[in-house]
Simulated assay, not measured.
Amino acid sequence: MWVRLLCAVIVLGFITAGQAAGQEKTFDAWWRGMVETAKDIPCGDRPFRVKWRVVDARSPSPQEIDALRRSIAGHPEHPDRTLLAQLENITAGKPFWVEKQFWIRGSQFRRSDNDSRGDGHGNDCALGDGVAWSLNARELVVMSDTKLAPGYPLDAELSILKPEFGTLMTGGLSYFRRYLDHVRPALTSDTTWDASGTAAFDGDVFEVRIKGTWNPGEGWGTVEEASSHVPASPTPNGWMFRSAHWVPNAILGRPAAKAVTQFDASGKPERRMELIEYEPIDDARFEQIIALPKLNEPDPIRGALTFSSVTDYRPGKPLQRLINPEGQETTRVLPDPLDRPSRNWLRYTGWLTAGAIVVVLVFIRLKRGK
């Protein structure tokens, strides 16, 4: 009898060990897929559409708003006037949000934005085969897909947008993609896992911590929280993401988060990203969506268009067509902006530098006053 019992225990041990090894192998495969997605959202030849919303989750103090008011007083063109309006709306219970749609096939795409300010503030841009364009309620700008006009860095759109909607695909890992090769994930129980490690970049050593849940029955996990900071820094630093409501995603073949909240170094929420839709589309629909808009034809996304200026920077002499309310057009030849560098960045950089100095001075003053 004792021999039988001992044999049963040994067999059970082998079975349990085999199951554990199988779970670890499945977990490792899931983690590798998450890391690959975090580093670069797969955008193959099959077009798809993703729609999400970014909500301002900050809770500014009266002192912060007053400091911002003083910093822009007397400067009617200061870029932070928009920020001030957003913060004032937050205190009134009307947080600013931007709703984004993105259609992509390989390197071709269209991006369409709307925000809480309502009609007239949306904008679109697209990069297609042979042509690129940017559109708002007043103006259509047309360019070659291989020679973009200054001030229209459409070739950078993918590097900006992919980490943002990739955050929903990975629970925030897209913003930690350069650290992921330096962390070691492991199951900590049948239903939980974590990963931690350190990574050195630009002279700083970052400490990274990620944790989540594991579904052993279906072989996939979630990322509940991801954070990084520089322990040696004398000032608060780093960021953190928390995700929730993971749901199956047919395109990824695994669940994605419906909501991800980003927190600042002090633990206060900054913004919340909410996944609305993520779906495949066919090639014919994609071609309609990225086609160059025409004033007298409804756009498949915007409907009736209202722009009254068309600036065409495609090869040849740049032209601008102005259309009055009666539909009459005037055309003028423009200097070619592609032959000279843009100086807009100097003005913008000046505002940013001045704003940063004001913020630092206000922060020091508030600290001393405590």
Rank of each mutant, 00 (worst) to 15 (best):
G350A: 06
V359P: 12
F165G: 08
T16W: 09
A73I: 09
F176R: 04
G74E: 00
E277C: 01
K268R: 13
E277A: 13
S233N: 12
G212C: 07
D190L: 13
L140E: 01
T330G: 02
K51F: 06
V358C: 14
R105N: 12
R105S: 15
I301A: 00
G22Q: 10
I301N: 02
D124E: 11
V11I: 13
G197V: 08
Q108G: 03
K367S: 12
P163F: 01
R105Q: 14
G253W: 00
R110D: 03
F263W: 08
L252D: 05
F27G: 11
S243R: 02
R271L: 15
A38E: 04
R271S: 15
I41R: 06
H229Y: 13
M1H: 13
A57T: 05
W97G: 05
E88Q: 09
P231L: 08
F307E: 01
Q262H: 09
L180P: 01
W103A: 05
A256T: 12
I281F: 02
P255A: 06
D66M: 11
H121F: 15
H245C: 14
G128D: 03
L140R: 04
K258A: 13
R49W: 14
V54Q: 15
T353A: 12
E277S: 13
V9C: 08
D194W: 03
S159T: 14
E77G: 01
A17T: 11
E77F: 09
G151Y: 06
W103H: 09
R254E: 00
W193L: 00
T146Y: 03
G22K: 10
C43H: 15
P150I: 10
R117S: 10
D56C: 04
N249I: 04
F263Q: 03
G350S: 05
D283A: 11
F201Q: 00
I251Y: 05
V223C: 03
G369Q: 15
R302L: 06
G350P: 07
L366F: 15
L168C: 07
G316L: 01
P185I: 03
D56H: 05
R343C: 10
W351S: 11
W351D: 07
D80W: 13
R111Q: 14
A73M: 08
V142C: 04
A257P: 07
R302C: 06
V333Q: 06
R314M: 03
G33K: 03
S308E: 10
F363I: 13
P298T: 05
R343T: 15
Q288W: 10
R117Q: 08
Q63H: 10
D190P: 05
N249M: 00
I90E: 06
L361S: 09
L154H: 05
A149K: 00
D113T: 12
V310F: 05
K367N: 11
M1Y: 10
G128H: 04
L322A: 12
A200Y: 05
W30L: 00
W31E: 02
A200L: 11
L135W: 10
S107T: 15
P234L: 02
T91Y: 03
D181C: 01
K162Q: 13
M143A: 07
R254A: 08
T146P: 11
V98K: 08
V358M: 15
M240H: 09
Q262V: 11
F14I: 15
N249W: 04
T170Y: 02
K294R: 12
G151F: 01
M240A: 12
